[in-house]
Amino acid sequence: MYDFAYHKPTSIADAVKLLQADPEAKPIAGGHTLIPALKHRLNRPSALVDLSGIAELKGIRREGDTIVIGAMTRHVEVATNPEVAAAIPALSRMAGSIGDTQVRNRGTMGGSLANNDPAADYPAAVLALGGTLVTNARQIAADDFFQGMFTTALEPAELLVAIRLPVPLKCGYAKMKNPASRYSMAGVFVAKGPAGVRVAVNGAGPGVFRVAAMEQALAANWSPDAVAGISIPADGLNSDIHASAEYRAHLVTVMAKRAVADAG
């Protein structure tokens, strides 16, 4: 780890100010990606702006038909919050399936979304639910937010503040974990709600993506059988020592079936 300055602001405005003042500074949420990168000296920020002291970034509330989750809300809180469990049960289960106890007590939903690791869980949920990403400057639709591997619509010094998720009629999630890292090797989140029927895939491709053919099939017939015969092309999917692109393509269909079954 190289030396860096450390700031712990208590307001969004102060955090943004710090980031704007120093283009080499980086915000840190739970740190599950950034800290290992720092330890391996793969990243050299001049300063870390720790977001954990900002109360307005935390917490979960229901606003009518929308669940609003603060960006610095920990996985454990998403997993155990009764409002989430009642409104978006698959999101509760997803949060409870991330990493292990230590990870869930430290990692944050906003950190994961802003990082947009292709193998992370949340992007599929937010995309399938048709969520809105609220920043200090604007509101971004999920379809516009995720822009491929580790890339989002966030501008430099723009902070993710909250995630707004419309409450769906049904939702389900299933994933196959990488045997080593336990990240998603292919995961599918399905949702039927105000945004229509949406199917989002994590782990399999270079970024989270939707599967239109499955969405159409499920809109016509909400059942595991509806997606059982739909396969996605392996072209462009990830391939590594754990899974070929062909295997990942196959898993997407299997996980889609299971996600629909999970949704009920």
Partner: peptide, 23 residues
């Protein structure tokens, strides 16, 4: 079922961390 020290044909260690070596 899990563990494999994976090397590329040229001797590059592909499973050089817990992210890729399945304990």
């Amino acid at each position: 079922l899990l563990e494999n020290a994976a090397y590329a044909p040229d001797g590059t260690l592909l499973s050089g961390s817990m992210m890729d070596y399945a304990m």
